[in-house]
Design a protein around this nucleic acid. Structure first.
Lengths: 342, 342
DNA sequence: AGCTAAATGAGGTACGTACCTCATGTCAAT
DNA sequence: ATTGACATGAGGTACGTACCTCATTTAGCT
């Protein structure tokens, strides 16, 4: 039997098409009793709105914006690629996507970018940024304007964002800790931890989860204080080299941040490279090569394609005032080792 | 600027709508020169066919069938759930899905089920089965009838199937081996390997990959010959108990097959449970609980939701004679440990 | 019973594409 | 110049839904 249409519902309920339409689209002017008759018919026939036809008729378009930092971290590049790809493949779902980049070290540039957006030309915004008072204000203004907002990758819990798309970073840190502990085993020693910035919420949460697991399950391994590199290559090279010299008992390095290029380079030339377990975040060209070359042991990653698609789905839903199926929007913490590297 | 429509193309190319339609849908009766004029206009305006409107007009429906074994393995249940979910959420894409189950131990039943299908009522078939001569013939008949076929989870390379949806099982076995070796570390000892059946291609491939890595990278660990359990719980319980008694040097168990219930139960009551590294395949209720309870150390899994959606996409494409973007149809080998267990 | 306001019906157009028919245009071979 | 084959145009209907207008019916009230 073919799929029932609005006409079938009308017939089944003994009402006109106009009434069915009013019920389906929540328009006023239908008695309670009639509403339930129509709903009974919908139930009975198993009617499901043909979304493609509906969108066609509705002529709806979603104008969505990604706001991304302009940092030299590979991970952000992969985000750009994922957005570009999802744009090209999803012309289908009536979505226009723009990308706005802001220089990471300049919070005013970000605020300025956000100020340029308004409900008049934007149906939703996905933001990857750190939470500062200025940013919080700018987001509040957008929200007041009625623009749905989702935080991307790093949460902005105190801004009133509608949703967070990304992994549970505490769990990601715990996963890194679990692998670090298991891989080092009863060799013991100490672990160096490298973060982009202690202002970055995702970094802090990962470090937290990592420390939890190391303390709970691998007390024989000493976890050293965080080294902050601010995504700067020279700083990383200098600090890592120094630390490796100072602490010859290092058996593990955990790279918490979004970039690992300089770290990998230092290790590539280091004599103890095979005695050190290296775990980093985000699957990029750099981490792929490091895995392949036996320099890195595991990468904790989040699928940027999933992140982008989820953000788009959520923003479209919020823009329509629809609910989201949160179980479907969960981003998995992926573990990548040499052998499952696609 | 709004998205261009066929009318815009017609105007731009200086031809009528009918001609544009002929070009777009590959209908005959258009001069070579005119075709290129139209294509130039399409190029210039960046026209992309509105697939939703096209499908609406075309009234196309895809009648697809999943053929699945009726075995008591949790993994097959999760496949059923994934299919059910994808049916309910994707009424959107004009697809009718049926599931055909066949008793796993009866190859004739499978052949009979396949015989019942034909191009008259089926636009594509996804099969999870082992490759036997009978199955090969039945698939050949379906293909001759013009029905696209994809193999699911376990490949059927010699049947002429159009595509395989699933993980690279050699790589999955290698991944299991990598983790097993790293987790056991320099403790050494021996590893028990449990397979469903040595007839099952996916099982054999995993075992192969596992052995490769163990031999290459962890020669100090002895890998024992496969124990075949035919997905039977009593057999598993008996053989595993016996082996654990005979070989007190066992430090690892690799469960290659689709079910791990009985194995987990045996281990749950075993005194050496915390001295044994347990790695299994497929994320199910059983393996989830085992991870949570510290009985299992890692699960190598394939996302059944992705598998089902990929199979549907591929079958629709093949049915239309369209090409698939194979990079988008790759199924990842997922590693799940206690800490990234959703 | 008569009135008013609310509820419902009838019928239309539109969205972008597919696909159909029939008329007319063009071109090359005779 | 005529013919015939082919190319193109013009215009239509359909898909399932949204949304509009206006007429008509119904229910609730005095």
């Amino acid at each position: 039997m073919a799929r029932p249409t609005v006409n079938d519902i009308a017939e089944e309920a003994g009402v006109s098409l106009a009434t069915v339409d009013r019920v389906l689209n929540g328009r006023p002017g239908v008695r309670e009793k009639t509403v339930s008759r129509v709903q009974a018919a919908i139930e009975k026939l198993g009617y499901v709105r043909d979304v493609t036809a509906a969108n066609l008729a509705r002529q709806r378009r979603y104008r969505l914006v990604f706001v991304l930092p302009d940092v030299p971290a590979q991970f952000v590049d992969t985000l750009h690629e994922a957005i570009a790809e999802s744009v090209s493949t999803s012309v289908v779902d009536r979505t226009d996507v723009r990308i706005v980049s802001f220089p990471n070290d300049n919070p005013h540039a970000l605020v300025k970018s956000l100020r340029a957006l308004s409900a008049a030309d934007t149906d939703g915004v996905a933001i990857f940024a750190q939470e500062t008072p200025h940013v919080r204000d700018a987001i509040a203004r957008l929200k007041a304007d009625g623009v749905p907002i989702v935080a991307l990758v790093s949460d902005l819990p105190n801004t009133g964002r509608d949703h967070f798309v990304g992994i549970d970073n505490v769990a990601a840190g715990r996963t890194a800790g679990f692998l670090m502990g298991k891989f080092i085993g009863n060799t013991g020693g100490s672990v160096m931890v490298l973060v982009s910035s202690l202002q970055a919420r995702d970094n802090v949460e990962r470090r937290l989860g990592f420390d939890q697991v190391m303390a709970e399950s691998f007390p024989a391994i000493e976890v050293l204080p965080s080294i902050e590199n601010h995504d700067d290559e020279e700083t990383t090279t200098r600090l890592v080299t120094e630390m490796l010299r100072k602490r010859p008992d290092i058996t593990g390095i955990y790279s918490v941040g979004h970039g690992s290029q300089a770290l990998v380079e230092v290790l590539r030339g280091h004599e103890r490279r095979h005695a050190i377990t290296l775990i980093a975040h985000e699957l990029t060209r750099v981490t792929r090569e490091a895995l392949r070359d036996h320099l890195m042991d595991a990468v904790i990653s989040q699928n940027v394609g999933h992140i982008v698609r989820s953000a788009l789905r959520v923003l479209r839903a919020k823009s329509d005032g629809r609910d989201i199926v949160s179980s479907q929007e969960r981003i998995r913490i992926e573990i990548v080792v040499r052998e499952n590297l696609v």
